[in-house]
């Protein structure tokens, strides 16, 4: 298992949730993981039902078997000051730069510098060791930018190394790229069984592979439960007699089966819902086939009927463990 787990996915597919569940799953059996947020949305704090995370590594959850999950919301501005400190001991000059708007510039406008800082910080956590010369974190899980931007985000150091041809930034950028392009890293893509997210996932895989970035797994999130089996689908799509269904409904206590009766009036809407289910079922089947073409390991996580909460997160983590992550 790679030590840096990058989780991306189209907006709305639940990549923050999956990243958090993955961090929990990897932390079981006494392991220690760091969950990193790079987009400043405080999605992790919301998921774990804690107050907003500061720019520091903080324990947010305990996993079954004594594992621990730490979280870090990277603030690009503070990360830049860190970075300056690391290379130049620029304390005062750093503050002066801040006054001049240089920090703003570097973290919001300057090409890629923001992304350099974010990936750099994550790689630093991956490589960090304790005094006993053990890795501080067994795994680092990054809740990364969406699929549309992930390749550029991870590859930014290549570009920076090209722009700054010498100097410490150049060296730092190259060191980060060595981690990102090695088997130490795996980039996972979260998707839904819908056309647009699947299309974006396929495009994302192709882009990542073209950039020599290591693609890990495809995680299909919010998979709806199978309620009708194939026989029932076939019956609902024409095999079954409407009168028989009305009668069956009536016998279950839902009113009259005669035309206009309460049970009879349920037949059409119920069959309509079944037809919709069938249409979605076919679509999902097709999308699964598209995803299978990628040849990557596929995982599926269930849609949680009561919405996402902390208990749901632990359920998803257990599910990931069961599926061999």
């Amino acid at each position: 298992m790679s030590r840096l787990q990058v989780v991306s996915g189209k907006g709305g597919t639940g990549k923050t949730t999956v990243a958090a569940a993955l961090a929990l799953a990897l932390a079981t059996e006494g392991k220690r993981t760091l969950l990193v947020e790079v987009e400043g949305r405080q999605g992790i704090a919301q998921l774990f039902e804690t107050e907003a995370l500061p720019y520091e590594e903080r324990k947010i959850a305990v996993a079954p078997g004594g594992g621990e999950v730490f979280a870090l919301a990277i603030d690009p501005e503070l990360a830049l000051l860190d970075y300056l400190q690391m290379f130049y001991k620029l304390g005062g000059a750093g503050r002066a730069l801040k006054k001049l708007g240089a920090i703003d510039f570097a973290t919001t406008v300057a090409p890629g510098l923001r992304d350099v800082l974010l990936t750099g910080k994550a790689c630093e956590a991956v490589r960090r060791k304790t005094k006993q010369n053990k890795y501080t974190y067994d795994y680092v899980v990054m809740d990364a930018p969406p699929t549309g931007r992930i390749t550029r985000f991870l590859n930014v150091n290549d570009e920076v190394a090209g722009l700054a041809k010498i100097g410490p930034i150049h060296n730092q950028a190259q060191a980060v790229m060595r981690v990102l392009k090695s088997p130490e890293t795996a980039v996972h893509l979260v998707t839904l069984l819908e056309e647009m997210p699947v299309q974006e996932t396929s495009d994302g895989i192709a882009e990542l592979q073209a950039a020599n970035l290591p693609v890990g797994r495809v995680i299909v999130n919010m998979v709806r439960p199978a309620i009708l089996d194939e026989t029932e689908l076939a019956l609902a799509q024409g095999g079954a007699s409407r009168t028989a269904i009305a009668k069956s409904l009536s016998s279950a206590g839902l009113g009259g089966a005669r035309k206009g009766g309460n049970a009879e009036r349920l037949v059409t809407p119920l069959l309509d819902q079944a037809a919709e289910y069938a249409e979605r079922h076919d679509l999902e089947h097709g999308q699964r086939a598209v995803l299978a073409e990628s040849g990557l390991p596929l995982h599926e996580l269930p849609l949680l009927a009561e919405g996402m909460d902390l208990a749901g997160l632990y359920r998803l983590a257990t599910e990931l463990r069961k599926q061999g992550i």
């Binding site: 007699s241 028989a244 009668k247 279950a252 049970a263 119920l270």
Partner: peptide, 29 residues
């Protein structure tokens, strides 16, 4: 509902068990 149910002519095949199974699935959906 009893009155209506009792006077309804029972439907032809599929067998009641299969229909009940389908109906139960439709209700769960």
């Amino acid at each position: 509902a009893t009155a209506t149910a009792a006077t309804t002519t029972p439907a032809a095949p599929p067998a009641p068990a299969a229909t009940d199974q389908l109906t139960a699935a439709l209700l769960r959906l």
